[in-house]
């Protein structure tokens, strides 16, 4: 399968297979009016299978959201058809605004203006918990 080269934009590479669509949703890429390609289950030397997202425009991207979905993702910045910068992501200590607490007993379910915030409580296992009710946040 051939997906064309991009001149100026971003390539999110080494996304854990199956997590590309989740990242697409969290980053709100459906709202962009430029070309966006989501490639699922691409061959990978490192992981056997991976997902890739190509965005045909240089946009401000939420690095925290990427680190939350999968800290092994690399963000490639393409300028003039060439790789200008490659960024490796770390898991953020705290995330806010792009995922919601699913616990029906959490205070955020009744107080609509409270920001949905989560704190990294186990870096090894990548566990985030709601700062209010401490419920575990599931990526998928």
């Amino acid at each position: 399968m051939i997906i064309g080269k991009i001149e100026n934009g971003l390539v999110l590479d080494h996304i854990r297979a199956g997590y590309g669509m989740k990242l697409y949703e969290i980053l709100g890429l459906d709202k962009l009016d430029c070309q966006v390609a989501l490639i699922k289950n691409a061959d990978s030397v490192k992981y056997e299978r991976k997902d890739i997202i190509k965005i045909d425009r240089m946009i401000d991207i939420n690095i925290d959201a990427i680190g939350f979905v999968d800290p092994n993702i690399t963000v490639n910045y393409i300028e003039g058809g060439k790789l200008a910068k490659r960024t490796h992501i770390d898991m953020p200590e705290e995330i806010e605004g792009f995922v919601r607490c699913k616990n029906p007993r959490c205070i955020t379910t009744v107080e609509q203006e409270l920001p949905h915030r989560f704190r990294l409580t186990d870096r090894e296992k990548g566990v985030y918990r709601c700062v209010y009710c401490e419920s575990k946040l599931e990526v998928k």
Binding site: N103, C106, I107, V131, Y132, C133
Partner: peptide
């Protein structure tokens, strides 16, 4: 408070000490 985490919200805004006397099943 019946909702879990309500005392965290309270403590963040309070000018006096807040004691959690129970927040739901939390």
């Amino acid at each position: 408070h019946p909702k879990e985490g309500a005392p965290v919200v309270a403590a963040a805004k309070s000018t006096v000490p807040v004691i959690n006397a129970g927040d739901g099943g939390h």
